[in-house]
């Protein structure tokens, strides 16, 4: 029961944050809403007994990514006058909803009609750091290494792309 309440509250924050993000006219509010959604998502992970994912989400998605985005706004000083005006925002959003609705509806229909499952019983250690770590290094070593490679590439790429000068 209490879990249900927590779920609905979190879902409210999640949907609200996400909607706020795409409707806000000022970038900073989008970022704030997005942060809200990300924190709520972390809560969702906690609710799913994924305690490590919960921490990773907080650490990476909220702590790192939001901070980084805000830092970019602040340090490049993208102030009001550089932000696009978007005079037909309402109309555009409506168009977006019209286009996205069938896709979402299709998935939801598929889920509702062809998917019936319940949560499996899980051990206490499910989702903890030790357990996830064991799984990660037992059967997911290659993806793990590849992801590290990807991160390295992204690191170098980010440095190269954002470097000043030299490029004409």
């Amino acid at each position: 029961m209490s879990e249900s309440i927590i779920f609905y509250v979190l879902a409210l924050f999640l949907i609200g944050g996400a909607s706020g993000m795409i409707t806000a006219r000022r970038t900073i509010f989008s970022a704030a809403s997005f942060m809200l959604a990300m924190i709520a998502l972390a809560g969702m992970f906690a609710l799913l007994n994924q305690s490590f994912l919960f921490l990773a989400q907080l650490l990476v998605a909220v702590g790192a990514i939001i901070t980084l985005s805000m830092l970019v706004i602040v340090s490049v000083n993208i102030s009001e006058r550089y932000i696009p005006k978007e005079p037909h925002l309402g109309r555009d959003l409506l168009l977006g909803v019209v286009i996205a609705a069938p896709i979402v509806a299709l998935i939801i229909t598929a889920l509702r009609t062809h998917f019936a499952a319940s949560f499996a019983p899980i051990p206490d250690t499910f989702g903890t750091l030790a357990s996830i770590g064991a799984t990660l290094f037992a059967s997911w070593v290659l993806p793990f290494e590849l992801i590290s490679l990807l991160l390295l590439a992204a690191l170098i790429g980010a440095v190269v792309i954002s470097r000043k000068g030299e490029r004409s």
Binding site: A18, I22, G96, A100, I107, I108
Partner: peptide, 22 residues
């Protein structure tokens, strides 16, 4: 369902918004 909905919202954002950050 919540995940699907979130995905849809993200989709709308990509289609409708011009602000690169959004």
């Amino acid at each position: 369902l919540l995940g699907t909905l979130l995905f849809g919202i993200g989709l709308v954002g990509v289609i409708a918004r011009r602000n690169l950050f959004v």
